[in-house]
């Protein structure tokens, strides 16, 4: 009885960890954008949903696996994100928060309703070949689909880490994030770096969308939920911190899965929001963020 329960719990935790890695990748995009530009992307969940739809279309109409279309989707997201920042968002950097909020809200409304207009309100899923495969790890059973998605998310996060720590552009972006004025003084093209950053953040969430569609089907109505989820993860982990976003993703993934096991699944978001409130009040820099008071 107890060993059964423990096994179920371990199973839920594993599942939560795997989903959490994809959550983490999604939140990473939000965190990167905020960390550098101090703009909160209120259209983040909508971008996620667009990524999911693109991967679904690739699968449905071109019969390409989401894992294969992912690089292309990320590239498209990068280009569109770059353009979006250059054209729409750039003038709003440093403006009052409510104006940024309204701008990104408008973008969010446009994105989600474009999905609705094109793909309709029905839920759209992807039937992967590996749908029913699984790996066994001792007594634990890992869904192949979920495992692949999680591994891909980790690989992308690693690439991102390499980008920020090894490349010139990546280092410049971090410098600009640390000190806007100093970056201007040493002659960095901050406008281009910002556009690049938004592109990178968008590519993250696009890639996360392509992975997520292999785990659950998409509807336009998921968008707002993902925006909130990304906020929760990023605040819990530490806004602007990369490791924070990933760890926050794992934490929320696990807490959702365990809440689904222990109490009613419909109560799972109450856990997340409760955690969010506690973190905001007790440790607003996030569990993994650095204090900068």
């Amino acid at each position: 009885m107890t060993s059964d329960f423990l096994l179920n719990l371990a199973q839920a935790v594993t599942k939560g960890l795997l989903t959490g890695m994809v959550y983490g990748l999604m939140a990473l995009g939000l965190s990167v954008i905020f960390g550098v530009m101090r703009v909160v992307n209120f259209a983040h969940g909508e971008m996620m949903v667009v990524g999911m739809y693109l991967a679904w279309m690739g699968f449905e109409y071109l019969e390409v696996s989401p894992l294969l279309s992912l690089p292309l989707i990320a590239a498209i997201f990068f280009a569109v994100g770059y353009g979006l920042q250059r054209s729409l968002i750039s003038p709003f950097i440093g403006r009052p928060e409510h104006q940024q909020f309204l701008l990104l809200l408008a973008v969010a409304i446009l994105l989600v309703n474009a999905c609705l207009a094109i793909a309709g309100p029905d839920s759209r899923g992807v039937q992967m070949e590996s749908q029913f495969d699984s790996y066994e790890l001792g007594p634990l059973v890992l869904d192949a689909v979920r495992l692949h998605a999680a591994l891909a998310a980790v690989a992308i996060a690693l690439l991102l880490w390499l980008f920020f720590s090894r490349t010139r552009t990546g280092k410049s972006i971090r410098a600009a994030a640390d000190n806007h004025l100093a970056a201007l003084v040493v002659g960095l093209d901050v406008r281009r770096l910002y556009a690049f950053t938004f592109g990178v953040g968008a590519a993250c969430v696009g890639a996360a969308g392509a992975l997520m569609i292999t785990i659950i089907p998409v509807t336009p109505f998921l968008a707002a939920e993902y925006t909130l989820l990304a906020f929760v993860i990023v605040i819990v982990g530490g806004l602007g911190s990369m490791t924070g976003a990933l760890m926050g993703g794992l934490l929320i993934g696990v807490s959702e899965a365990v809440a689904g096991l222990l109490v009613q699944p419909s109560l799972k978001s109450m856990f997340s929001f409760g955690l969010l409130i506690l973190v905001l009040l007790l440790r607003p820099q996030g569990l993994f963020g650095k204090s900068n008071s």
């Binding site: 909160v40 928060e97 909020f101 909130l228 906020f231 929760v232 605040i235 009613q264 419909s266 109560l267 978001s269 109450m270 929001f273 409760g274 969010l276 409130i277 905001l280 009040l281 007790l282 607003p284």
Partner: peptide, 30 residues
């Protein structure tokens, strides 16, 4: 009181208000 006492400002305060509203939504669901 919670938001101001713990000096949450701007986006952080806004997220706190969202969190309370969502929390209540799920509570009323049940």
């Amino acid at each position: 009181y919670l938001g101001f006492r713990f000096s949450l400002a701007g986006v952080y305060f806004a997220l706190l208000t969202i969190a309370f509203s969502e929390f209540t939504r799920v509570a009323f669901d049940h």
